[in-house]
């Protein structure tokens, strides 16, 4: 579905992304992990079409990203950025309805309202519908923004840390929704900081450091103590998960020697 070939992105003489290739297919949840400043968000913004790569090509369904109009892209891919601030007193319901914007010709139809309500229900946020978005906690805001992304009903979802402000239950819930969308034929690319969340829900994981891949592959293949040390400069213990056929990662404190 999304195919990127030897992407690079340089701004003000600084190379943020350097020769990155990736192909993500329908039905797949792809997790992007890596340390702060590795270029994960920049990569996602390149995939979204917001930024234009300095080198390389991105195609969506075989067609170069640059050939799509803004509205065509809005019907094909949804993007959840890290933090969302809504100006003025828009209610949660209004905000999620804005996710329907590319679909609405003149006025919203009962179908649009149905989609908005279902999206809010699926993230367990329907009880917030009449609150003002600006008055919600950051975790609640994230769930509402995710509902808005769902209401956009696209086949490609680009999510920048969708779970980082959520409580334990809703972290699992959001990743489960992503997984079920993938099983219905969507492609999901998500930046995830919680490696254990990535290990359980991702079909493939890419570890990014300094704008290039450390490794790309299945959670079992990629989440190794060596790779994680190379990426995060942090010792970890990787063991089999007690319930799933996936790795379980336990981060260890920095030792003085490794810190230097």
């Amino acid at each position: 579905m999304l195919e990127a070939t030897s992407l690079s992105y340089t701004i003000n003489g600084k190379t943020i992304i350097n020769d990155v290739s990736l192909s993500v297919e329908r039905g797949e949840v792809f997790a992007l992990v890596g340390p702060n400043g590795a270029g994960k968000s920049t990569l996602l913004r390149l995939f979204s079409g917001e930024l234009t790569p300095s080198g390389g090509v991105i195609t969506l369904n075989g067609q170069p990203l640059g050939e799509y109009s803004r509205r065509q892209l809005a019907l094909k891919r949804a993007v959840m950025a890290q933090r969302e601030s809504v100006s003025f007193d828009f209610s949660v319901y209004d905000v999620v309805m804005l996710g329907r914007h590319p679909h609405i010709k003149r006025a919203e139809t009962p179908h649009d309202r149905e989609v908005v309500e279902t999206s809010l229900k699926s993230t367990e946020s329907d009880y917030l519908a009449d609150r003002f978005f600006a008055t919600l906690s950051s975790g609640e805001q994230s769930r509402v923004t995710f509902s808005r992304i769902l209401a956009q009903q696209t086949d490609l979802l680009l999510l920048d840390e969708p779970t980082s402000t959520l409580d334990l239950r809703h972290q699992q819930l959001i990743m489960m929704i992503a997984q079920s969308l993938a099983s219905e034929g969507a492609a999901i690319i998500a930046i995830v900081h919680d490696l254990n969340l990535a290990a359980i829900y991702a079909d493939r994981i890419g570890i990014l450091r300094d704008g290039t891949w450390v490794d790309v592959g299945t959670p079992q293949a990629v989440l190794t103590e060596e790779n994680l040390f190379a990426a995060f400069n942090l010792p970890t213990v990787v063991m089999p998960h007690p319930h799933y056929d996936r790795p379980l990662i336990v981060p260890l404190p920095l030792s003085k020697k490794q810190d230097s």
């Binding site: 917001e50 892209l73 950025a81 969302e84 828009f90």
Partner: peptide, 11 residues
Amino acid sequence: ALGEVEAGYLG
């Protein structure tokens, strides 16, 4: 109201 970047994502 969602933000400049978000509005761009929505077309």
